[in-house]
Design a protein around this nucleic acid. Structure first.
Length: 504
RNA sequence: GCCCUCCUAGCUCAAUUGGCAGAGCAGCUGACUCUUAAUCAGCGGGUUGUAGGUUCGAGUCCUACGGGGGGCACCA
């Protein structure tokens, strides 16, 4: 951490900035219209001249971007300029641009932003190149960019200074543009299927709809504590009561729990509710959303996933929860003594705990990691699903599914419980062995009142956007698909001396 | 919260058993009008995350603290 050397490198660039201003050029640039995306420039069909042939003058192009590489050659310089679509080589000759522009070229650093007008053509070695006729300075980078070959590799720096990661690591930029493509695809598919996008409160007096600990915040004027939402579920279902038959929300939820490669304290979920649907309708929707996303980001249905491969070719199997437990845990779920014995062997407490809670723990311990998927796990034990409609044929079973891929839970959906009396009962009854703060059952009187106005039978769905992005973009950590993952604050850097820099 | 591990120049990385802190890139000076991580010659750049300790001597060993990564726990 040398303040001295950092200042040294910055001082050199600050001096160049001053010299650029001395040339009568604004070192912070201005509006620069009508430049082409570099990818579009590269897509221009310009035939390569044959050996020895004098090349035809190519089309005039205008580009803008960041200087990534510089190869000086006396009175000629080659730059690699990158924008958010591509990179391209720029040729600048002293004779071609004139003395005035050449004075500016001397003051260009890696990381600076420039606009280039020129003609498109090929160099002697056959590289597509913009032969500059004019330069426009668009922004001075006072900070030196990372090493030109390796980019920024330090994980911590990549997360803390994402702006550097994005411009220096094309793969990182590609990932976040891919995430944007996935979100856009979700909106498009939902719209095609007749859903409307809505926004519901993120600050809630009762943080319901999931089993998670909320963040607490405070409203000063009302002098009340509020929770950041852990799910939009209960508000979206109020909209079903109100007659909005197909709604969805793509939004941030906040859960005050651990951080891991699969968990960020704030993450993005899409929740959708469809009146007169059920969980099978939600499975079709889920498959449609994810398959459309795969087509949008490209790469086919058989996709790399770390060292593994995941085959997303639809349709995906739909497997019963208890069948999977039978297979992987090797016990008959109806024989609770056997289940308890198996749970104890797996290190799961059984004493004084609800039967379905023990079964759920055993499922997580023995089945989830083995689910290569994609696979819909369907028909959950009812006691662990307080917001879900029970099967008419068997009230011990809830009409719920979760979608798993390589042990990762990607989606969670129900046929929604719309019986207000049963909902109220389930809100009141805590399961034995579950702490209240960890329970999904939190009394929400207004929600029960809403159900008393008749909520249509419905299917509801939640999909973790971040995890889907991990899987489709092949990133091992959620922090690689969240632009600014939560980090501990660093100790403040000593404030730079203000007085002796003020003239710049 | 617990366990393991990492932190060396702006960036990417070396440094043998505890023995003079190094290289490449970037930067600066100079040469070069078709380069491809351009090349060539020269120069500058460090409180080895922080604070202690052991030692004749610590980047290296020990302790504490800070930050990161992985795992456990919690959760989606």
């Amino acid at each position: 951490m040398s303040e001295e050397s950092r200042d040294g490198l910055e001082a050199v660039r600050a001096e160049k900035l001053r010299k650029i201003a001395d040339l009568g050029i604004d070192p912070w640039g201005h509006r620069f219209d009508d430049h082409k995306a570099i990818a579009a420039v590269r897509a221009i069909d310009l035939p390569k001249p044959a050996e020895g042939e004098t090349p035809e003058p190519g089309p005039a192009v205008r580009i803008a971007g960041r200087i990534m590489l510089r190869r000086g050659q006396g009175k000629v310089v080659f730059l690699e300029v990158r924008d958010w679509t591509e990179r391209i080589q720029v040729f600048i000759g002293k004779k071609q641009v004139g003395d005035q522009a050449w004075a500016l070229v001397d003051l260009l650093d890696l990381g600076d932003l420039i606009g280039v007008d020129g003609t498109l053509g090929y160099t002697k070695t056959g590289e597509l190149t913009v032969f500059a006729t004019a330069l426009t300075f668009l922004g001075k980078s006072l900070a030196p960019p990372p090493e030109k070959w390796h980019g920024l590799t330090d994980q911590e720096e990549r997360y803390r200074r994402r702006y550097v990661d994005l411009y220096s690591n094309p793969e990182s930029l590609r990932t976040f543009l891919g995430r944007s493509t996935i979100v856009r695809t979700f909106r498009k598919v939902m719209e095609e299927r007749g859903f409307v996008e809505v926004e519901t409160p993120t600050m809630q007096a009762i943080a319901g709809g999931a089993a998670a600990r909320p963040f607490v915040t405070h409203h000063n004027t009302l002098d009340i504590d509020l929770f950041l939402r852990i799910a939009p579920e209960l508000y979206l279902k109020r909209l079903l009561v109100g007659g909005m038959e197909r709604v969805f929300e793509i939004g941030r939820v906040y859960r005050n729990e651990g951080i891991s490669p699969k968990h960020n304290p704030e993450f993005t979920m899409m929740e959708a509710y469809q009146a007169y649907g059920d969980y099978h309708a939600m499975m079709d929707l889920t498959e449609g959303l994810i398959c459309a996303s795969i087509e949008a980001v490209g790469g086919g249905f058989v996709r790399p996933w770390g060292e593994k491969t995941v085959d997303f070719t639809p349709p995906w199997p739909r497997r019963c929860y208890l069948d999977l437990l039978r297979e992987h845990a090797g016990v008959d779920p109806d024989d609770y003594e056997a289940v308890k014995a198996r749970a104890k062997a797996a290190g799961i407490a059984t004493e004084g705990r609800d039967r379905d809670v023990v079964i759920s723990d055993l499922f997580e311990a023995t089945v989830e990691d083995a689910l290569a998927g994609p696979v819909f796990v369907i028909d959950y034990p009812a006691a662990i699903c307080p917001l879900t409609k029970r099967k008419a044929s068997d009230p011990r079973v809830a009409e719920r599914f979760e979608l798993f891929v390589d042990g990762i839970e990607l989606a969670n959906a129900y046929t929604e419980l719309n019986d207000p009396y049963l909902q109220e009962d389930l809100f009141r009854s805590q399961l034995a062995g579950q702490k209240e703060e960890d329970s999904m059952a939190k009394m929400d009187d207004d929600f029960v009142q809403a159900l008393k106005n008749a909520m249509p039978p419905a299917g509801g769905l939640g999909i973790g956007i971040d995890r889907l992005c991990m899987l489709l973009l092949n990133k091992a950590s959620i922090r690689d698909v969240v632009l600014f993952p939560l980090m501990r604050p660093q100790a403040a850097r000593p404030a730079a001396a203000v007085d002796d820099e003020s003239e710049i």
